[in-house]
């Protein structure tokens, strides 16, 4: 299970590849859905990073004259009950979603990788103990686990990230552990050991890079679920508190009250969540096809 020689793959597929640009075009042609996903994800990241340049209004500033304003030339996506510009709030909301999504995925990934590596590498009592602990954590659905965690930590941006990251750990740890177990017996690892390389170094230099492909695939999938879980938590009032414009929160209280008079309050934040998660899913599928040939469809 070595890392995929992408170039060879492309050549085999009959592509005449010169330079990264045509390579990109080729990949995009080969995986049109993935390309669309990548565009969506890039737009999302771009929006989040440059929110302060994109948003025409301060997302927290209220205006009594604009309460529940319809979408139009001033408020492109309308305004909420407090007269806050929906477009600006959705743009800033991308920041929250990105921060929570990325934060939780990275944190969960980092913890999962360390636990998985140590577990697979050290084996023995440590492995046994962590496996049982992961069993426990996996005996609750992601949202239920995150819900209890979020309640225990209290609502804040940082706590929400932690609450979502922890339930993501077991899957990552399991994936890393199982590839570590099989890699440990591979000839190149034994060779490294034979030349006197330290175990930690072997783990980091040789074993870890070879688990990257499934990790990236997994990470993309987890990014999507992290964003969804954050939205659900905030919708239930246990996630990101005001004044942060979280998409899930925007759908919860005030928005739902104006389903009839101001449907834009319900439609647009939902579209934002769905599009973003949809993009990460498309991208994740394509990455899996590219990086993990066994599962290729």
């Amino acid at each position: 299970m070595a890392i995929i020689d992408h170039e060879a793959e492309l050549h085999r597929a009959g592509a005449n590849i010169t330079g990264w640009r045509s390579q990109l075009v080729f990949t995009a042609r080969r995986y049109p859905l993935g390309a669309i996903g990548a565009v969506i994800v890039l737009t999302f990241v771009f929006t989040a990073v440059f929110a302060n340049f994109i948003a025409p209004f301060d997302p927290t500033s209220t205006d009594s004259k604009a309460s529940l304003a319809r979408p139009g030339s001033v408020f492109w996506l309308g305004a909420d009950f407090m007269g806050r510009d929906m477009f600006s709030r959705i743009v800033y909301g991308a920041r929250i979603s990105l921060a929570v999504g990325m934060g939780a995925t990275l944190m969960g990934g980092l913890l999962g990788v360390s636990i998985g590596l140590m577990s697979g590498y050290l084996g023995g009592a440590f492995d046994l103990l962590t496996q049982r602990l992961l069993d426990v954590m996996q005996s609750l659905p992601l949202l239920v686990m995150a819900l209890v965690m979020a309640a225990a930590l209290g609502p804040s941006l940082e706590n929400t990230i932690v609450a979502i990251a922890i339930p993501l750990v077991p899957t990552v740890a399991r994936v890393v552990r199982s590839s570590t177990l099989s890699l440990r017996e591979q000839p190149f690892v034994e060779a490294a050991r034979a030349v006197g390389m330290g175990e930690v170094r072997i783990a980091v230099r040789h074993v870890l890079p070879n688990t990257l492909a499934p990790l990236i695939v997994l990470g993309t999938a987890q990014l999507g679920s992290a964003i969804l879980v954050e939205a659900s938590l905030s919708f239930l009032g246990l996630g990101i508190p005001e004044p942060y414009p979280s998409w899930g929160r925007m759908l919860s209280e005030s928005a739902a009250e104006y389903v009839r008079t101001a449907p834009w309050l319900v439609i647009f934040p939902g579209v934002a969540i769905s599009m973003t998660v949809f993009g990460t899913n498309l991208l994740g599928d394509a990455l899996r096809d590219i990086l993990d040939p066994r599962q290729r469809s």
């Binding site: 927290t60 500033s61 209220t62 407090m82 609502p155 508190p241 005001e242 209280e253 005030s254």
Partner: peptide, 28 residues
């Protein structure tokens, strides 16, 4: 309090305090 009927006026208050050099943040 982290309930809409409390939070909504608080958001407006924060907005108004900007006018007198008070930079307030909501603490739900």
């Amino acid at each position: 309090r982290n309930i809409a009927i409390y939070r909504d006026p608080a958001v407006i208050l924060i907005d108004q305090l900007k006018a007198i050099y008070i930079d307030a943040e909501l603490d739900p």
